[in-house]
Simulated assay, not measured.
Amino acid sequence: MRVVFAGTPEFAACALRALHEAGFEIPLVLTQPDRPAGRGMQLQASSVKQYALAHGMEVAQPLSLRMDSKDPQRGTEARAAHERLLALDYDVMVVAAYGLILPRSTLDIRPCINIHGSLLPRWRGAAPIHRAIEAGDRETGVTIMGMEEGLDTGPMMLMERVPIADTDTTGSLHDRLAELGGRMIVEALRRMEAGVLEAVPQPEDGVTYAAKISKEEAKLDFTLPAELLWRRVRAFNPFPGAHGMVDGVAVKVWNAVLAEGSGAPGAVLSADAQGVVVACGGGALRMTELQKPGGKRLAAPDFLKSFPLSGKVFS
């Protein structure tokens, strides 16, 4: 089969690598335009683009695929991408965390299959891994689905479940789901080649939406229960990084566990080699890995050497 691939971050690059290593021909890769990144804010190619170019694949980076865009440049690039797809001999488009909406004009050219990091219909939308951890879900997984114009509403083709451990962060869970998604899309396309890939509609019950993560919600509100804050610390690791304010300084919290203790929300109950225990609206949170602005991520004992927290209050 000839596969057009559309994706952008590392999650998608894992799938592209799996397809390439499985021997599928990939005549075109779509990915988002290069973005400024890092301290120098230099333009950086997406993980998908880097893999594609390293393996001699053609890459296109349109700003949009919507030909009716009111922005002249977006409309022009969308029409060029549409014409390229129409002229291309391919069998299926595989989409994984592309970041652009595929309009009906694209969906109608060839079948489109999506790799989605949740157990649909739970957590449709942009941030299914973050939201599953934040909500305290005990399991998640990957769904291979057909694409429609609706947001992750298409029929399900394959699904595999993955347990969520108490130690999981979005980073660790992302890596497991990315590898699983790569394996599953290879299996799905092989079934499609054999004519035995079935699709079933999603259940109408249990639909939830995984809204995009904002930097603002990563600020910890210590009037909330410790268990919710513990889940948010894990959900926002590595992006955008949960944080609390101490004397006007944003202290990032990369890892934490639940602890015993009570007091005024935000009050530091203890700060020692075991971690920094902070009272919450219910229970307490023991922070075990922290970071100050411009500093490195440090285990609590090392962090406290340069940033004492005894008697302080997180706000």
Rank of each mutant, 00 (worst) to 15 (best):
R131K: 09
L151M: 13
E139W: 00
H82A: 13
W123M: 05
P225W: 00
G7E: 07
L65S: 00
I144R: 11
A226V: 06
G141K: 11
L28K: 05
A78V: 09
R110A: 11
L309I: 08
R232L: 04
R104F: 08
A188V: 03
G275C: 02
G38E: 04
M145R: 05
M41G: 00
K215M: 13
A259T: 06
E289H: 15
G195E: 02
V268A: 07
V313S: 13
L63E: 14
S270Y: 00
R110G: 08
A132F: 04
A267F: 05
R124G: 07
P240L: 06
V200W: 10
V4A: 09
Q32R: 14
T167Q: 04
L119R: 04
L100K: 15
L30D: 09
A165H: 12
L107H: 05
A250C: 03
A165M: 08
G171T: 01
A60C: 11
R286W: 02
M157H: 12
A267S: 14
G248H: 07
G75A: 14
Q291H: 05
H55L: 09
A81T: 07
V253C: 12
A264M: 09
E149I: 11
G281H: 08
M93S: 03
E148W: 03
G171C: 00
L177C: 09
E25A: 15
F239C: 01
G136C: 04
T143E: 10
L19Y: 04
V268D: 02
A250Y: 06
P72W: 08
A60T: 10
D152R: 01
A37R: 15
L100C: 09
K212A: 13
G282R: 15
